[in-house]
């Protein structure tokens, strides 16, 4: 994964609350391998019934501004793959579902939680605006207006350095090994039997 610090691109609005992962990528597309690319599946059903869908009007957009609780529902990381493969680098919303936000960061996509996202949505309307994001400063500028966004520092570091969780944890294998030994001593039943006890 390639890290990044700043991004400039076109912002477009999707004024919907609770955009769930089934809307982002319907389940029927999820058997594809990552190499096949997921961009063509993004919002497939919403786009199908809407000739005026924002991302069809503005296919070059890389900053998506949406309603609160974006990414609710399933833990499917394919929802993030679909966004990233369609060229989206930043999603702006008042709030994000927990699992989605973590998945996003693990794939270089910024879930920018902006308190006044509703105002950004209103200002964008049906149009677009130039947007710029600075991860180090924690700022997002859309149409000349600058907003702060909340993001845990470790997520910022992951995005800037292109790290995922495995990269971060590999330095602590000794700690894991020591814990495993303690766990096996304190709770040996964690290592399950062979599934043949009396009710088996």
């Amino acid at each position: 994964m390639t890290g990044w610090t700043t991004h400039e691109g076109l912002a477009v609005a999707l004024p919907r609350a609770n955009v769930d992962t089934d809307q982002i990528i319907p389940a029927r597309f999820m058997s594809a391998s990552r190499a096949e690319g997921y961009g063509g599946f993004l919002f497939a059903d919403l786009r199908d019934g809407d000739a005026d869908f924002p991302l069809d009007r503005h296919p070059d957009a890389s900053v998506l501004v949406a309603g609160p609780n974006f990414g609710s529902g399933s833990s499917r990381e394919a929802a993030v793959y679909a966004l990233v493969d369609a060229g989206i680098r930043v999603v702006v919303a008042e709030s994000f579902a927990d699992i989605f936000a973590g998945n996003a960061v693990n794939n270089g996509l910024l879930p920018a939680a902006v308190r006044d996202a509703a105002e950004v949505l209103e200002a964008l309307g049906d149009g677009t605006a130039e947007a710029s994001v600075d991860l180090e400063k924690g700022t997002l500028t859309i149409g000349g207006q600058t907003h702060g966004f909340d993001i845990p520092d470790i997520w910022r570091q992951k995005l800037i350095n292109g790290w995922d969780d495995i990269d971060l944890t590999r330095a602590h294998l000794d700690d894991i090994s020591a814990y495993r030994h303690r766990r096996a001593t304190d709770a040996p039943w964690v290592w399950a039997g062979d599934g043949t006890s009396s009710a088996g």
Binding site: S75, V80, P152, I166, T169, L173
Partner: peptide, 20 residues
């Protein structure tokens, strides 16, 4: 708790999960 694919890979590789 549920996790995404990158986290699944992390658990497979390390038997741990990073979480707040």
């Amino acid at each position: 708790f549920g996790i995404g694919a990158t986290q699944v890979a992390h658990v497979l590789a390390t038997q741990t999960i990073r979480a707040s």
